[in-house]
Amino acid sequence: MINIAAFFSFATTYLEKYVGFWAAYLLPTCVLCIAFLHLIVWNKHLGTLTIIRKQTLALTFQVKRPPQGSVLLQAAQIISLAIRSRHRFKAANPSYQQMHYSQMPPWTAESLTEVQRSLKTCRVILCFAIYYLCYFQILSNIISQAGQMETHGIPTDTFSCLNPIFCVIFIPTFQKILYPFLNQRHIHFGPITRMSVGFLFVAFAMAYTAITQHIIYTHGPCYSHPLTCPAGKISNNQHRPNDINVWIQLPSHILLSIGEIFGLGSLGEHAYAEAPADIKVVLQSFCQLTGALGASLAIALSPLCEDPWLVVVYATYAGFAGVVGLVFWAVFRRCDIRETAREGDRQEYDEMRVWWEMGHNVAIDDQLTEVERT
């Protein structure tokens, strides 16, 4: 849905060019107002889940949780106590505190385990700072790169909108073709492996962007100083771009889209699956914080992003992403092994459950039939 909503970006770029900035900002404002009204009107229905069995019986479950206290304070207390105890989480265990200090902390052993699991997941999320550094080039330097080529009247901001189009194309393609193909051959393509592949695709995208920049530098009229040389000057405020078609940039957007699917999509899946129920939102927020860290790195390195050094900059980003992706897989691949074991346990449990139900004649469908009769 996020990628489908991003199609409005096409309209905003043309509104900005042919109408003005006020119209470009008015369109997303109206869309946000519609979404806000939808939340108000349908608020009471957003927290229910209805399951219909045999087209006669509908079971409705309330899945909206009531407001609860923040778990951040308790997690901070656990981490602080572990740090003071020489980074030993064992010291934060309630039984340990009761035995050695005769005091009972306000958390349980289960809460301690949840915090430990969350911190392990945060290590995975933190590695995406370099990923975001490369990915955010699509919103900055790659747009500037498009302005150095012949756009034939297309706004340069429009090319960043190609990313959601390719995501909408590739996501169902992977779900319907790639993933079933791998499952049929018993090839486990877990979240960590997918994220590592996402790093590599982003690295390939940065490498291709470096090649594109090199091609720009080999074409006139301004060569390695696009839009600045006297030979390309048209008027006092305008310069002619280098003689190369902007669509040569298309593979960069395709590679970044595939990297987003494998990288960011799998990151959200892994963070949601590994996080305890009370800390899921916190870890999702930490993902956004890592994105902010990547954006901060991009801002810090922006003084280096000038002609004629952009080829070196993109090649360096590609090297960083490739190395981090390989190290990431080497360090965290055991998480995929544990995920495979959990899936095997769930499958074995389902098989045993079906066998038990068939042997004792207490299948769920029979229970529902009995409820319907009453």
Score class of each variant (00 low, 15 high):
Thr108Ala: 13
Ala109Gly: 11
Ala109Ile: 09
Glu110His: 10
Ser111Lys: 14
Thr113Gly: 13
Glu114Lys: 11
Glu114Asn: 12
Val115Ser: 13
Gln116Asn: 09
Arg117Thr: 09
Arg117Asp: 09
Arg117Val: 08
Leu119Glu: 05
Arg123Thr: 07
Val124Glu: 08
Ile125Glu: 04
Cys127Tyr: 15
Cys127Ser: 13
Cys127Asn: 06
Ile130Trp: 05
Tyr131Lys: 11
Tyr132Ile: 11
Tyr135Thr: 01
Tyr135Trp: 05
Phe136Val: 03
Phe136Asp: 05
Leu139Val: 07
Leu139Gln: 07
Ser140Ile: 08
Ile142Val: 14
Ser144His: 15
Gln148Arg: 14
Glu150His: 13
Thr151Met: 11
Thr151Trp: 09
Gly153Arg: 01
Gly153His: 00
Ile154Phe: 13
Pro155Gln: 01
Thr158Gly: 04
Phe159Pro: 00
Leu162Gln: 09
Phe166Gly: 05
Ile169Arg: 04
Ile169His: 09
Phe170Cys: 07
Phe170Gln: 08
Phe170Thr: 00
Ile171His: 00
Gln175Met: 10
Gln175Asn: 10
Gln175Ala: 14
Ile177Trp: 14
Leu178Gln: 04
Phe181Leu: 00
Asn183Tyr: 04
Gln184Tyr: 04
Arg185Ser: 10
Phe189Gly: 00
Pro191Ile: 01
Ile192Gln: 08
Ile192Phe: 05
Ile192Thr: 03
Thr193Val: 08
